[in-house]
Write a protein that binds this DNA or RNA. Structure first.
Length: 152
DNA sequence: GCCAACGTTGGC
DNA sequence: GCCAACGTTGGC
């Protein structure tokens, strides 16, 4: 069982949007970075939990938790020329990009802001807080996961 | 294989 | 809107 953090811009897709989806389930598509792709494809397992992080938000921070309900499979939106995330390098025979399916698990009573996360000494080595880290999918250690839950 | 130019992310 | 930090592209 692994823990993760997944970023989304709430203007595009927020935790409330996920909560309001049929079955509270959605594809986590559109990841176009190889490091993040590898985690989606190879490491995320059914039943893993992930923080839903709101990026480019006011404020940015962790809004809640989702569960991985389907492991990595080809991101078919990369094959659709009319889609914003279309990538001609990806084909059905040789998919370049992968996605997982997630299900809404819970929304925190309040958002834990990036500022608060930075102020927690238990999180000082967290990937999210490292300078220049722009990955949209990150691994979270069990210790970090626990420390964040205690901040609610 | 190097690296400059360009594009993107995302905090502020 | 600015810009630092990265990732990608493509000429050589």
């Amino acid at each position: 069982m692994n823990y993760w953090l997944m970023k989304s811009e709430p203007n595009t897709f927020s935790i409330m949007d996920l909560k309001n989806r049929p079955n509270q389930t959605e594809h986590w598509d559109g990841v176009r970075n190889y490091q993040a792709r590898n985690m989606l494809r190879d490491q995320m397992k059914k039943g893993d939990l992930a923080f839903f992080y709101h990026s480019n938000a006011e404020p940015s921070g962790i809004a809640g938790i989702v569960k991985i309900i389907k492991e990595g499979y080809p991101d078919f939106k990369a094959w659709d020329p009319t889609d914003d995330h279309y990538d001609p390098k990806s084909t059905e025979e040789k998919p370049q990009w992968y996605m997982v399916d997630v299900k809404f698990e819970k929304q925190f009573k309040r958002l834990i802001s990036l500022t608060e996360l930075r102020e927690n000494p238990a999180l000082k080595n967290m990937t999210l807080l490292r300078k220049g880290n722009r990955l949209s999918i990150m691994s979270v250690s069990a210790e970090e996961w626990k420390a964040i839950l205690e901040m609610i």
